[in-house]
Design a protein around this nucleic acid. Structure first.
Lengths: 255, 255
DNA sequence: CGCCTTCTTGAAGGATCTCAAGAAGGGTGG
DNA sequence: CCACCCTTCTTGAGATCCTTCAAGAAGGCG
């Protein structure tokens, strides 16, 4: 489906440099990663359950989710990934995963060989560090997701999820109205919040009536960010987004 | 209090080498890590919420949990750590965490300076790799925890948790009766399973009546491991425990 | 135009929570 | 060694949030 384009890798590099300090050379090494562009249809597996991979995928466009599954087929989304994310970066170091990756909507991905990432990490320890750090942010999000699903009621859960996605997509927080694209079905929201589709529907209606959030098939409109964040008990710290430049990290020396 | 003992570090090294291939020198570097032994009372914070740490903690004995908290004070355990675990290893690369670490029972820990771990990782890239890998196993456990809390009912949830802890503590799976020490209160089980203490109590009674598990304040007795695993829909793959020696991983070259 | 997915609504049932209070257990000091 | 206290465990009854089941409406795409 076509070869890699530097523009495809830029969002991933931006993601890394938003939290880690990288030299010019190190940044260049990221932009020069090889990869193959692919188009994935909605509901199609990108990584199947238990599959042993020799490449990772970088999301260029669209939404991708990590799925866990109960034996009686009840699905649970454990993470949602957006453009610039490398959802299975951990497979570089742990090739057999225990969950599946599936496109939530039509998505464009870039597959990058493990070998290339390992070579880059071996050449530049700061890249290994940045990779590790990025994975730990994902782990923080997992932990927060447990709290969300475990300790909040339907309305709070949905509100929290909308705030998380709005923040990660760079739309919030903001004083006025916030609108961001978020093309998921109510059934997918149900899989993410551990509710049923029916109850997600009623919850979205309730949020809309309360003028807290208006979720359509294409986008989310949040008239008052702070009000929704209060309902969802949302504290963005765990996302490690919007890190101030002087707080970006680098432990290793420059080679 | 008191100084580090090599015997304290051995379980951590065993944990690392159970999944990663390390040379003699690398193993020695782990065993020579400096640290301070400390005793932590039950219910005491080891790492407070949002605290910036300059050291990690290694559990020598006892149980430690990662806590998330709702704004109205409802607590949720997002992970339980046992002897040999380094619950905040990720802080080496991400020093400000977004959750607290608290002792579930009286625990002995070893505090190890970040500087020492960073030096070891810089000297031996295979150690950095092993650290990263270990963190990713924890992340896999988080993801599974989301499924557990999100998609299983009370009985399944408790059964799954018991199987997970039994497996991690090296007691299961086994054909006959399995007994392992697990000193938690019902309130703590409730925090872990996202139930109330009252309902955990009734659920434990139900498991006991069904001869599936007998949970006391000190230990867990599982008369029939496979039966409990079936109830809890437990598939141990995500724990990456009991990895065959030939499946242990090393990506980097030896220095 | 017709089909298939997604959304919407109603009604009934159930799993879990909340509130309340008493029993049991473990440790401490007199 | 007993008395006391505080934590933990246990039990009951009523309330509630969410699910399940069912069916029709709306929306998108060939």
């Amino acid at each position: 489906m076509g070869n890699v384009n530097k523009a495809d890798l830029q969002p991933f590099l931006d993601r890394l440099t938003s939290r880690s300090v990288l030299t010019e050379d190190e940044q260049q090494a990221i932009l020069e990663l090889p990869g193959r562009r692919e188009l994935v249809q909605s509901h199609r597996d990108i990584v199947a359950l238990g599959e042993q991979a020799d490449h990772v995928c970088l999301i260029v466009a669209g939404l991708v989710a990590r799925f866990g599954e109960d034996s009686d087929g009840k699905r649970q989304i454990t993470a949602i990934y957006i453009a610039g994310d490398m959802p299975d970066l951990q497979s570089v170091v742990q090739p057999v995963g225990s969950s599946a990756l599936q496109a939530l909507s039509m998505a464009t991905i870039l597959t990058v060989p493990h070998a290339a990432l390992r070579a880059a990490a071996a050449r530049y320890p700061a890249l290994a560090e940045a990779f590790w750090r990025d994975c730990m942010v994902d782990a923080d999000i997992f932990a927060q997701w447990v709290v969300n699903v475990g300790r909040r009621d339907a309305r709070e859960r949905v509100a929290h999820l909308l705030c998380e996605m709005g923040t990660r997509l760079g739309a919030g927080p903001a004083a006025g109205e916030v609108v961001f694209p978020f093309a998921v079905t109510q059934a997918q929201l149900a899989d993410a919040t551990a509710l049923t589709g029916v109850h997600v529907n009623r919850t979205l209606q309730s949020l809309r009536r309360a003028r807290l959030a208006d979720v359509s098939r294409q986008a989310v409109r949040i008239p008052n960010w702070n009000a929704l964040a209060a309902v969802g008990d949302f504290d963005p710290g765990y996302l490690h987004a919007n890190v101030r430049p002087d707080q970006r990290l680098r432990m290793v020396e420059t080679v």
